[in-house]
Computed example of a mutant assay.
Amino acid sequence: MIKNIQIATLGGGCFWCTEAVFQKVKGVEKVVSGYAGGNAPGRPTYREICSGLSGFAEVIRITFDESTISYQDILVIFMTTHNPTTLNKQGADRGTQYRSVIYYHDETQQKIAEEVLTQIEPYYTDKITTELSALPTFYEAEQEHQNYYRENTQQGYCSYVIEPKLAKLRKLHADKLK
């Protein structure tokens, strides 16, 4: 089968969480943690992002094979493994850097994202606050933020924050997992 490689860029709170989720999904070839959507000059650093003043969001860039998993399925997994109804926060993580955001790469992705947001909204009691915007410049995060969960499974944040997200992924999307 010929691969149809596509890219999605999403932010759903801490990038360690969203990275860990998508590394488990069939058809996902690569997940890179990074930053997008800010207004600070030059390449941002994690320290600048954590200040909440840079305007950047913690995001992941997902390289996936669309002949195995669709962009729509990627978005449904994304929207159901984080809370898209809390503005600028996920759990205890607070600030604009933790906002829920879908950065589309082209008009087709924009249209699919709009459809998914419309279809999924009735499943939530509160209004979805996920930002939908054209992809700005993506900056890869520092090396210590790549594969964070895989390399730090015993760390407290991984146990208390990431593990429940992975449990939710297994419960809701078992058919999409590697």
Results as ranks from 00 to 15, higher is better:
Asn4Met: 14
Asn4Tyr: 04
Ile7Cys: 08
Ala8Cys: 11
Gly11Phe: 11
Gly12Ala: 15
Gly12Tyr: 08
Phe15Gly: 00
Cys17Asn: 14
Cys17Trp: 09
Cys17Val: 04
Ala20Tyr: 00
Phe22Thr: 12
Phe22Asn: 13
Lys24Arg: 15
Gly27Thr: 01
Glu29Asn: 10
Glu29Gly: 01
Lys30Trp: 02
Lys30Glu: 15
Val31Thr: 12
Val31Ala: 09
Val32Ala: 07
Gly34Lys: 02
Tyr35Asn: 00
Tyr35Trp: 02
Ala36Val: 12
Pro41Ser: 15
Thr45Lys: 15
Thr45Arg: 11
Thr45Leu: 11
Arg47Pro: 04
Glu48Ile: 01
Ile49Thr: 13
Ile49Asn: 09
Ile49Trp: 05
Cys50Phe: 05
Cys50Asn: 03
Cys50Asp: 01
Cys50Met: 15
Ser51Phe: 05
Ser51Arg: 10
Leu53Ser: 06
Gly55Glu: 03
Gly55Ile: 01
Ala57Pro: 02
Ala57Lys: 12
Ala57Arg: 12
Val59Ala: 08
Ile62Lys: 03
Ile62Tyr: 04
Thr63Tyr: 06
Thr63Val: 12
Thr63Asp: 02
Thr63Glu: 13
Phe64Cys: 03
Asp65Lys: 10
Glu66Thr: 02
Ser67Arg: 13
Thr68Asn: 08
Thr68Gln: 13
Thr68Arg: 09
Ile69Gly: 11
Ser70Lys: 03
Tyr71Met: 02
Asp73Ser: 03
Leu75Trp: 01
Met79Glu: 08
Met79Arg: 05
Thr81His: 04
Asn83Tyr: 02
Asn88Cys: 08
Asn88Thr: 03
Lys89Phe: 00
Gly95Pro: 01
Thr96Asn: 03
Gln97Val: 05
Tyr98Cys: 14
Arg99His: 07
Arg99Lys: 15
Val101Tyr: 14
Ile102Lys: 11
Ile102Cys: 06
Tyr103Pro: 00
Asp106Lys: 05
Thr108Asp: 03
Gln109Ser: 10
Gln109Pro: 09
Gln109Gly: 06
Ala113Phe: 05
Glu114Cys: 12
Val116Gln: 06
Leu117Lys: 12
Pro122Ile: 00
Tyr123Cys: 03
Tyr123Ile: 08
Tyr124Ile: 07
Thr125Cys: 07
Asp126Cys: 01
Ile128Val: 13
Ile128Pro: 02
Thr129Ala: 09
Ser133Trp: 06
Ala134Lys: 14
Ala134Glu: 13
Leu135Ala: 15
Thr137Gly: 03
Tyr139Asn: 07
Tyr139Trp: 15
Glu140Ser: 13
His145Lys: 11
His145Phe: 04
Gln146Leu: 09
Gln146His: 06
Tyr148His: 11
Tyr149Pro: 08
Arg150Trp: 07
Glu151Leu: 15
Gln155His: 11
Tyr157Glu: 13
Ser159Asn: 13
Ser159Ala: 10
Tyr160Cys: 10
Ile162Cys: 14
Ile162Lys: 10
Glu163Ile: 14
Lys165Arg: 10
Leu166His: 12
Leu169Trp: 06
Leu169His: 12
Leu169Ala: 07
Leu169Met: 09
Lys171Phe: 06
Leu172Gly: 00
Ala174Leu: 06
Asp175Gln: 14
Lys176Ile: 00
